[in-house]
Design a binder for these strands. Structure first.
Lengths: 249, 249
DNA sequence: GCATGCGATTAACCTCGATCATGACGATTC
DNA sequence: GAATCGTCATGATCGAGGTTAATCGCATGC
């Protein structure tokens, strides 16, 4: 199903079969989109949202000089602009990074869901707040980490997210991003990202070639990027969090 | 009323009288809190949320060396950790910056609201997404602006937000923050914030003394910080946005 | 065959902001 | 009144990362 990956393994909010069916039934159409296409522009009024089925998408803000700051990367299973449902107007652009398959969910369907299924509504709400939690991790990354730490943190995060989507084995994954993309994510220049990538390779932490990341030493990489996956709210059957307290980051 | 400032003048989602009354009735208690106190810690399970009535609060992440990155500043009228309702566990700490008055809303009350009042539920959802939009503006600030631009952007944002809360006349406002606080917000050191403040003063853009900001040249300050208030979703009766398209940022 | 263009790479140079240090001023506490 | 502490202020030094520019590899198209 198109919604198979949505909220998969998320702590306490995985969808019931009926909920997933309802969401699936809310999809009005699916389509494929080329790489580097804009799906929605800041300010436009939206009456539908986009569920990403395959490929990578991003959300970004433009600065006055035409440079971009990416504010989110979206992977298969993400409800990319679900937040457009309550907001109606977005404050940023949404676009594809790679060729993508997307499913369209009209807001009238979401109206019906919020009227009839409060539990599913809370789970949709949760999904948008998960994006906000990732925003906060990105703020930490930009505000407190140096260049090497930022790239390390980004690779760690993406590895965990892709793993929960079944698209990484935890050791390597294909991103389809360029060094310039990573620069727009980490608030660096492409030149310096190149230096950082070389450093990470020479230190034996990870490699990044042709849009493919290989994790060589996950523990060291996480340490270098001060990465703690708690903010991703992923259910880890191996080490369930204590019911009342997760470790501090 | 305690909720008077909540979602005031927000585009298209201001509360109906009945909705506001219901929210007001959901408050179980109010209390005052000293400055620099922690209200909630990362990882704790929460079964209530906090509406800020008076004072300034913040949300922040700690790094490994004990430094903090603030990820949000909250002003009177903000539903500070409403996102804890769907999330249940927070990924960050919540604390007061100044002495504060807060109102407590138990999550069981929000359960009832989401069961019975889908329209109000969407407005609460909107409120949490507004915080996410502010996160994104902060990402832009940290990723694309230099030190002077970051501080300028922060003062502009806070001025607009306080103005819509009726706590700034648009020319000056009291924040009660120190230069060290601004440093934790803008990802800078206190030493450099001091230099930036001096620069802004000497250039005639604004002053910052004893926690009080005076805007000397709002247009220049906004320009220096590449500030466009669209992401705050504030209803401006003077210049209503065209129904189908807001200006690009 | 050659042209074109994108992405990765590397070098030289320079700037912004961190770091370290010192001091002033006011409020508080004893 | 002295001591202490938080906040603000300012100078000197240094390094991480930006800027600019040149080159290379590789894919694609004609």
């Amino acid at each position: 199903m198109l919604t198979d990956r949505f909220l998969r393994d998320r702590r306490g909010v995985s969808l019931e079969a009926g909920e997933r069916a309802r969401l699936e039934a809310s999809i009005s159409s699916t389509m494929t989109v080329d790489a580097r296409k804009i799906i929605a522009r800041a300010g436009e009024r939206l009456d539908q949202s986009t569920l990403l089925v395959e490929g990578i998408m991003s959300r970004y803000l433009d600065d006055r000089n035409g440079l971009r700051q990416l504010v989110a990367i979206h992977l298969p299973g993400d409800f990319v602009d679900l937040h457009a449902y309550p907001l109606k107007h977005l404050d940023h652009d949404v676009g594809t990074m790679t060729p993508a398959t997307i499913a369209i969910v009209p807001h009238v369907e979401l109206d019906a869901i919020t009227e009839e299924m409060p539990e599913l509504t809370r789970k949709l709400w949760f999904a948008t707040l998960l994006d906000a939690a990732i925003h906060r991790a990105w703020l930490f990354r930009l505000g407190r980490l140096d260049a090497i730490g930022r790239v390390a943190h980004f690779f760690c995060e993406t590895n965990v997210r892709l793993q929960s989507a079944g698209l990484s084995d935890g050791r390597q994954f294909t991103l389809g991003l360029t060094q310039a993309d990573v620069a727009e994510i980490c608030g660096l220049t492409t030149v310096h990202v190149n230096r950082v990538v070389r450093h990470l390779r020479e230190e034996g932490l990870c490699t990044f070639r042709n849009g493919k990341v290989e994790i060589l030493d996950a523990a060291k990489l996480a340490r270098r990027g001060q990465f703690d996956p708690a903010y991703l709210y992923i259910d880890d059957p191996e080490s369930p969090p204590p019911p009342d307290q997760r470790p501090r980051r």
